Simulated scan of single mutants.
Amino acid sequence: MFDDNAPSPSAEGSAPDLNQDALIDAYSHAVAAVADSVGPAVVRVQGGTPDRRGGLGSGVVIAGDGLVLTNSHVVAGARRVRIGLPEAGDREAEVLGEDPATDLALLRVELPRGAATATLGDSKMLRRGHLVVGIGNPLGFESTITAGIVSALGRSLRSQSGHLIDDVIQTDAALNPGNSGGALVAASGQVVGINTAMIAGAQGLAFAVSSNTARFVIGEFIAHGRVRRAHLGIAAQTVPLPRRVSLAIHSGANAVRIGEVQPGGAAQLAGLRVGDILFALDDVVVEGADDLLRLLGADRIGRPVEVSLLREGRLITRTVTAHERPA
């Protein structure tokens, strides 16, 4: 039986009209709320040394004691940099740590009373299509807001220093020179990435280091002043696993695909191949490149580790003696 009271399609056969004004209004409110809450915590950063050019970039205040997160390529080897605080002028900041392998650096600056701070969120909660807002100082225009969506997750990106950065977020939120080190913010108001790069001449291709990677790096900076880590000699990309596969191997929803094996590296010596899917390390489930990065801490340098792999539908294990990641 047909319901005579049910809404009918339009003459063109399309779905019933939605309240477009309400949708646009909700989108605008979400972006404006992020701008109001996180924008004041994004600062200007001027880095570089006499023999190594840095740049004018951005940074994110992540703690009330003056911790500021930015890009390594903005700091560019400097021990001290200049910070431009909203409504508080320029101040000198100390570089607590710099890690070109993730293009992240941690600074400390004296903050005025009541200065705004941002909260690092869980980047693993992101999905393609989620709304994100970029906040930074592109081309010197301070406190600029752009908005877009998460275009892809788990990318690998070659940094300006030549290092391959894993677990990078791709977004179409417009970024330009000067956005580097700024915040990529979810609709919840939490920082889910630190903007790191755009591709010149390509519209809608911009990238951010995930907040989960940033959490690991911050902990290393605070504990050791630098990031010491083991390295398998691979480029890792986060990929989803079919549910039937993850259930069969008792893994998570995601794993790591080996996209590159470095010649002469630990992985090549152990027989790992491009295309292998790595889902566990020493029986600990690996659900992404950020998991792998955290598991390969300094305590695993020079130690054999067992990696669990899927190769052409077969379950295999290999023992890899991890090297120290080159400085």
Rank of each mutant, 00 (worst) to 15 (best):
V192L: 00
A266L: 07
P100C: 01
L315G: 03
G84H: 07
S72D: 02
P326Y: 06
L296I: 13
P112D: 12
I234V: 15
L296N: 13
G59P: 03
H224C: 05
N195V: 05
F221Q: 06
V284T: 14
G77R: 00
V286D: 12
P50Y: 05
G64S: 08
S10M: 06
N19L: 08
V239I: 15
V209E: 04
L315D: 03
R228V: 11
L67N: 12
G162K: 11
E110V: 13
H73R: 04
A35Q: 08
S72E: 01
V284R: 14
R79Y: 01
A22W: 00
A115P: 01
P177D: 07
Q46G: 11
D276S: 14
A35N: 05
R80Y: 00
S8N: 09
E287M: 13
G275C: 11
D167M: 00
V132S: 04
Q268A: 11
D4M: 13
V74L: 03
H250C: 06
L111F: 07
P9T: 14
A298L: 10
P112L: 09
R314N: 14
D291N: 15
D3S: 12
I222H: 00
E142M: 14
L85T: 03
P86Y: 02
D172M: 02
S180V: 08
R300M: 15
D4C: 05
P263V: 12
E142D: 14
R244S: 09
I218W: 11
P100N: 00
G297T: 14
V43S: 04
S37I: 04
G182N: 04
G259K: 11
N176I: 05
G55A: 01
R244V: 06
R257K: 09
A147Y: 10
G134K: 13
S246W: 09
V261H: 11
A223Y: 03
R113C: 05
S159H: 02
R314E: 15
D17C: 00
G265F: 05
I222M: 06
A197L: 09
Q20I: 15
R127C: 06
G84N: 07
H130R: 03
F221W: 04
V109W: 05
A11D: 13
A186D: 09
G55N: 04
V320W: 07
F141W: 08
G84E: 09
S151M: 01
R79K: 03
G48V: 07
S72A: 07
V75A: 03
H323E: 15
L205C: 02
A270I: 08
G288S: 13
P112C: 08
A30R: 02
A22F: 02
S123H: 05
G182K: 08
T319L: 14
A223I: 09
D167K: 00
L269Q: 15
H224G: 04
G313L: 07
P7T: 11
I199D: 00
L164Y: 09
N19A: 14
R314V: 13
G297H: 12
L126G: 04
G193I: 07
G264I: 08
L175D: 03
G233H: 03
A255L: 03
L131N: 08
G313A: 12
S123C: 04
F207R: 04
F279Y: 15
I145M: 13
R52E: 10
L18Q: 12
P112S: 11
Q46I: 12
G140V: 13
R91P: 07
T213Y: 00
L184N: 05
A88P: 06
T102R: 12
V34D: 08
A214D: 11
D4Q: 08
